[in-house]
């Protein structure tokens, strides 16, 4: 049944992605400083290649978004930046990932130290089954960070815009929070160890629109101090929050069996959503594919 309201909605011209696309300001783009330099990266799981031939730079104090259809390897790719793939039996990372010029996969690099510097927020909020306070304090505690734990917890909760909602019930279980609050708690948990980079793997995909907006606002605030990399399959989200956007796609081998993720195009977000260089990117962002 079509109601009046539905008809009205359809008559409103939707805001185009090009209109909302975040612009990496010219000045920032000119002075850009690479935090990560990825060179010819490939990941395979027990011999099956998930993603290959990826080269791109991630810039400091900006939001970089990875977009693309399901199975294009964007989650696999983001997990290369904090060596989470090390935890998957049979996973192998080839090529180079330089972090501030240093090889992340060098023999002398301890993955535990990498993860301490490069935090991660997951698709589904994963608070620990502990109190709100203990969730935030877990990182500083295991790392043996100096200074007042109370202050650290408060600062992290303020940074993630959660303090006002939870400051009276820090000792209560984090599992009692709403989904959106849980995700902001996970961001706060990540901030409490003072990372350099925050990786977010579809951080809002399990959340309602209002919670999603809050997470996106948070990213705007946080990029002043942190470098943020986000995987999303929501193009509007990429357009709203990202300065730089990388479009990944699935390359199907001629025999139709092997599917591998590849990087199609990487550029300033405004460019990706207005004048993409590659036909595949254009098809994707205009909704003709995927």
């Amino acid at each position: 049944m079509v109601t009046m309201a539905d008809q009205q909605v359809t008559t409103i011209e939707p805001m185009s992605l090009a209109d909302i696309a975040q612009e990496h300001s010219d000045e920032a783009y000119k002075n850009r400083e690479a935090v990560f330099e990825v060179k010819d990266l490939a990941v395979d799981y027990s011999g099956a290649t998930a993603i290959r031939e990826v080269s791109l730079d991630v810039y400091k104090n900006s939001v970089t978004a990875f977009i693309g259809p399901s199975g294009c390897g964007k989650s696999t790719f983001i997990r290369c930046f904090n060596r989470m793939n090390d935890l998957v039996p049979g996973a192998h990372v080839h090529g180079d990932v330089l972090y501030h010029g240093k090889d992340l996969y060098g023999d002398d690099v301890d993955p535990v130290e990498v993860r301490r510097r490069i935090g991660m927020v997951f698709q589904k909020p994963n608070p620990f089954p502990k109190s709100i306070y203990d969730n935030i304090a877990f990182g500083p505690r295991v790392l043996g960070l100096k200074g007042s734990l109370d202050e650290r917890v408060e600062r992290a909760l303020r940074q993630s815009a959660l303090w006002d909602e939870v400051n009276t019930r820090l000792k209560e279980s984090a599992l009692g929070l709403s989904g959106g609050q849980q995700q902001r708690l996970c961001i706060a948990r990540c901030l409490a160890v003072e990372p350099d980079v925050i990786l977010m793997d579809e951080p809002a995909s399990a959340l309602d629109p209002i919670s999603t907006t809050r997470i996106e606002d948070l990213m705007h605030d946080l990029k002043r101090e942190y470098t943020i990399v986000i995987v999303t399959h929501n193009m509007q989200q990429a357009a709203r929050v990202a300065d730089m956007t990388a479009f990944f796609s699935v390359d199907v081998a001629p025999d139709g069996n092997k599917r591998t993720g590849i990087l199609v195009e990487y550029d300033r977000t405004s460019k990706i959503f207005t004048t993409p260089a590659d036909k595949r990117t254009e098809d994707y962002v205009t909704g003709r594919f995927g």
Partner: peptide, 26 residues
């Protein structure tokens, strides 16, 4: 759930810390 382990690893915890402080208590 594995998400608990991953969350702890992502904060820079060692395997023993993940096991002794998260997995075992749970």
């Amino acid at each position: 759930p594995d998400s608990i382990r991953q969350g702890a690893y992502a904060l820079g915890a060692t395997q023993w810390q993940v096991v002794s402080r998260q997995v075992l208590p749970a």
